[in-house]
C-alpha cells in the first residue's frame, strides 16, 4: 500500500511543430527521471526538433537529483542543436532551489508554457 503501483504512466512527451513539450506532474521517482532524460534525448535526436519545453508547474519539489537531470537534458539537447526552456517553476520551489545552492545557471527559464513557446519562436537566447 505504501509502495506506489508499478508501471506508472510514463511522462508524456508531446511534439508541437518543432518543439517537444514535456509536462512533469507530481511525484517523480529517480528512475522515472532518468528514463525521461533518455526519452527526451532520443526524441530530440530522431525528430530533429529545435526546442524543448519542460513544464514543471505541476512539480512540488525539485531536489538536486532532479535538478541535475534537468540541467543534463538541456546540455544534451544543446549538443543536438535544440534549445531547452524550463517553464512554470513554482515560487516555493524556486526559493528552495536557491537556498539549496542550485541556481541552474545554464538553463533558460520562462514563467509558463506560453512564454516558453514565445521565447523559442523568437529565436533569441
Amino acid at each position: 500500500m505504501n509502495q506506489p503501483t508499478p508501471g506508472q504512466p510514463a511522462v508524456p512527451v508531446l511534439a508541437l511543430g518543432d518543439v517537444l513539450l514535456v509536462s512533469l506532474q507530481g511525484e517523480l521517482h529517480d528512475g522515472m527521471a532518468e528514463q525521461l532524460q533518455h526519452d527526451i534525448t532520443s526524441r530530440v535526436a530522431t525528430s530533429g526538433v529545435t526546442g524543448v519545453v519542460i513544464d514543471i508547474s505541476g512539480v512540488e519539489i525539485v531536489d538536486s537529483f532532479l535538478g541535475r537531470v534537468l540541467a543534463e537534458i538541456a546540455s544534451t539537447a544543446r549538443l543536438l542543436a535544440a534549445r531547452t526552456v524550463l517553464a512554470g517553476m513554482r515560487p516555493a520551489v524556486a526559493i528552495t532551489l536557491v537556498e539549496l545552492g542550485l541556481t541552474l545557471p545554464g538553463l533558460v527559464t520562462a514563467l509558463d508554457v506560453d512564454r516558453a513557446m514565445e521565447l523559442l519562436s523568437r529565436g533569441g537566447s
Binding site: 517553476m89 532551489l97 536557491v98 541556481t103 520562462a110 514563467l111 509558463d112 512564454r115
Partner: peptide, 9 residues
C-alpha cells in the same frame, strides 16, 4: 534575483 530568474523573470 536568482529565485526570480528560475521562475523566468
Amino acid at each position: 534575483v536568482a529565485a526570480a530568474r528560475l521562475m523566468g523573470a
